[in-house]
Amino acid sequence: MQQDIDALMRDHDGTVPGASVLVLRDGRPIVRRSYGMADMEARVAATPATNYRLASVSKQFTAASILLLAQDGRLGLDDPVRKWLPSLPEVAAPITVRHLLTHTSGLIDYEDVMDPADTRQVHDADVLHLLESQHTTYFPPGQGYRYSNSGYALLSLIVERASGLRYADFLRQRIFLPLGMQGTVAFEDGISQVAHRAYGYSLENGAWRRTDQSTTSAVLGDGGIYSSIDDLARWDAALYDERLLKADSLRQAFMPATKTDVADVEYGFGWRITGDSLWHSGETIGFRNVIVRYPKEHMTVVVLTNRDDPEPYETAKRIAVLVRDGDAAH
């Protein structure tokens, strides 16, 4: 099985941008392997401790933060968003926290209203300012589905207002440290560091070029977390018991709340749901990642990569098939 997985990951091996692959079965890592380079310029190889920018895989942590605060009685999932962010325009009045979690708010995509001439990085608070001037929505809240980075940026601001903590500090205090995720961080340039950091790359004219940050890379709520396969193993374990979230909170996170724009995919709170699998991919300049959980089989596959291409979801599903075939052979 390991040789078959190595063959699948062959393009990530050597002096190229790399990848880390984790397969958990019954809580045990049966595959824990890294390929290629975390840092091409410094010639630093990827390891299981390498921290990759998770991109939208971060959304499950934003959703968990909201659920923790709901458990604490600090907020309600059906609170109007303007209760927490009153500067949003009148058109946002019907939008609830639940709509943000499930991409059913209809909010305008902040990426589409950024000033293309402004090369400064946007932060979560800037997303709010951009949306304050948007007096339309794509559809009435709750009446459709449209994947929304805007919604998850606003959720991070709601976490700050309901908890009294900066979002990165809330994640660290309430999720990362309690679970022993020592290397995981919501990265803020000039404030925090990423240990064992992978840098992102894109293939341009046959050569790898560092493309590690874009103007939207500093937004935390929709995609700003760095983590490793070793730390994500700790996260996965916590999703099977009540050490972090109570059973009812987990049930809500993993329950289909809406159909998406893909036929066999539904969405919960920060998780896509396809059949018996819970998954989420992440894509940003220089990184492509996926986590796929099969709770009934007690199996999870994580593939983290520091390159623009290819998208690893299909690879992760093929790895899951190899694991099942290996089990069947025994």
Results as ranks from 00 to 15, higher is better:
164 G>F: 06
164 G>K: 03
164 G>M: 08
164 G>Q: 04
164 G>I: 13
167 Y>K: 01
168 A>G: 05
168 A>S: 11
169 D>V: 14
169 D>C: 06
170 F>H: 04
171 L>W: 01
171 L>C: 02
172 R>Y: 03
173 Q>D: 05
175 I>M: 04
175 I>R: 02
175 I>P: 00
176 F>H: 06
177 L>F: 04
177 L>K: 14
177 L>W: 05
178 P>I: 15
178 P>F: 07
181 M>R: 02
183 G>H: 04
183 G>Y: 02
183 G>T: 11
183 G>D: 11
184 T>L: 01
184 T>W: 08
185 V>F: 02
186 A>L: 01
187 F>I: 03
188 E>L: 11
189 D>I: 15
189 D>A: 15
190 G>Y: 11
190 G>D: 08
191 I>A: 14
192 S>I: 10
193 Q>R: 09
193 Q>T: 11
193 Q>W: 09
195 A>Q: 05
196 H>T: 00
197 R>V: 11
198 A>V: 10
198 A>D: 01
199 Y>G: 05
199 Y>S: 10
201 Y>W: 09
203 L>R: 15
203 L>N: 15
204 E>A: 10
207 A>H: 11
210 R>V: 15
210 R>Q: 15
212 D>Y: 10
215 T>M: 02
216 T>Q: 10
216 T>V: 14
217 S>W: 01
217 S>G: 07
218 A>E: 06
219 V>L: 00
220 L>K: 03
220 L>S: 04
224 G>W: 09
224 G>E: 00
227 S>I: 00
228 S>N: 08
231 D>E: 02
233 A>Q: 07
235 W>C: 06
235 W>R: 07
236 D>E: 14
237 A>K: 15
237 A>F: 02
238 A>W: 03
239 L>W: 06
240 Y>A: 14
242 E>W: 04
245 L>A: 07
245 L>M: 05
247 A>G: 01
249 S>L: 03
249 S>M: 03
250 L>E: 01
253 A>W: 00
254 F>M: 11
254 F>G: 01
256 P>D: 07
256 P>A: 07
260 T>P: 13
260 T>I: 12
260 T>E: 14
261 D>S: 15
263 A>P: 12
264 D>E: 11
265 V>P: 05
266 E>A: 15
266 E>N: 14
269 F>L: 07
270 G>Y: 08
270 G>P: 04
272 R>D: 07
276 D>E: 10
276 D>N: 11
278 L>A: 12
278 L>G: 12
278 L>H: 14
279 W>G: 12
279 W>A: 10
280 H>F: 12
281 S>K: 03
282 G>Q: 04
282 G>D: 08
